[in-house]
């Protein structure tokens, strides 16, 4: 329990750091992005919205930085992330709310599946060290060196086209209304097969390799030799003795690298025009939509923190030593 509290405290601290970073970054923007927006949309923008954007970008010159910081927090607590320039005048929180579920489903599920599959294959590769499996390792290295987005481009070129089963872009059939019914769900699944496969192929090999190396390291431990000497079945030694212990560092490695993985997988959405956060970020960059960019960064960071906390809970369940103290 203490372990979990410590981790939670750390994640809260990180969230605070990310929010503070988010507060300072727009203050580095040269010029006045809000003023140009206001003059472009003269009369269509409400006074409240102007005020909210001013707080976000620190344009109230009458206030000192500390006051601005407090205002920023107050605004954040109300869930107000400003107005999106791209989808003007939709609030950023609405835009993010629409795309968050897509990303969580695509990136979240594929990341977990790739970790589980990669770890399982790594157990096999590590246990059978020196067999033909070792010959496959360079191939996995090559796959993991390919940028996600390029693999996506190739997948589109090879698998899509007129008359193909796979659609080349979008998250669902145009014309369908997002709802959990028999028309929408199959269409959404069909559209997510290729992006998911792309992420799986290029992210899995990293897990195979790290799990293989952990298995090799663990299988020279004395307790493995003892298990063999006791005459336990091979399968049991491999799974309950070696893999069980090799898994722990892999799980903590997974938690630590979540930030890297999520960043990379967001690009797959760009290539496939998948209506998730990555695609929105891409559009926001194109339109210099700073409020949307910041909002997306904040949401991605917080999601990664939550995922980290979940990984810590998994670690807690797997490792009895953390429970004892």
């Amino acid at each position: 329990m203490r372990f979990l509290l410590q981790r939670t405290a750390f994640y809260l601290f990180t969230a605070w750091a990310a929010i503070t970073l988010n507060f300072f970054i727009p203050r580095l923007v040269p010029g006045d992005p809000v003023q140009s927006l206001i003059s472009r949309n003269q009369g269509r923008i409400s006074a409240d919205a102007i005020q909210s954007l001013r707080v976000l970008f620190g344009l109230d010159k009458n206030e000192n930085v500390w006051q601005q910081y407090l205002d920023y927090w107050r605004q954040l607590c109300h869930g107000d992330l400003g107005l999106s320039f791209t989808f003007f005048p939709t609030p950023v929180s609405t835009v993010i709310g629409d795309s968050l579920l897509w990303t969580v489903c695509l990136v979240g599920i594929t990341t977990v599946v790739s970790f589980l599959l990669g770890t399982a294959l790594g157990v096999g590769a590590g246990w059978r060290r020196g067999s033909w499996v070792d010959g496959l390792l360079p191939a996995t290295t090559f796959l993991s060196s390919i940028p996600y987005f390029w693999l996506g481009l190739v997948a589109i070129a090879v698998f899509t086209g007129p008359g193909s089963f796979f659609p080349s872009s979008g998250g669902y059939e145009p014309g369908l209304v997002p709802a959990f019914d028999q028309y929408f769900v199959p269409s959404a699944i069909k559209h997510s097969v290729l992006p998911a496969a792309t992420i799986l192929v290029s992210s899995m090999s990293g897990w195979i390799l790290s799990m293989r190396n952990m298995m090799v390291t663990v299988s020279s431990e004395d307790y493995i030799t003892v298990a063999h000497a006791k005459g336990l079945p091979e399968r049991r030694v491999a799974l309950s003795y070696a893999a069980r212990n090799a898994l722990l560092p892999n799980v903590s490695g997974f938690a630590l690298s979540l930030g890297f993985i999520v960043g990379g997988t967001l690009l797959v959405e760009i290539v496939f025009s998948y209506p998730g956060l990555g695609y929105q970020l891409f559009q926001a960059v194109g339109y210099k939509d700073y409020p949307l960019m910041q909002g997306i960064f904040l949401i991605i960071t917080i999601s990664v923190l939550v995922a980290n906390l979940l990984a810590d809970v998994a670690y807690l369940l797997l490792d009895p030593r953390t429970r004892k103290s």
């Binding site: 990180t14 990310a18 630590l256 960071t301």
Partner: peptide
């Protein structure tokens, strides 16, 4: 704590945002 914070914050979105500020 500093390095853990930098480790957990998704690096690529941060880099994208910081770079996009500079013309």
């Amino acid at each position: 704590a500093l390095s853990n914070v930098f480790l957990v914050i998704p690096a690529l979105p941060l880099i994208i945002i910081v770079t996009s500020i500079v013309e």
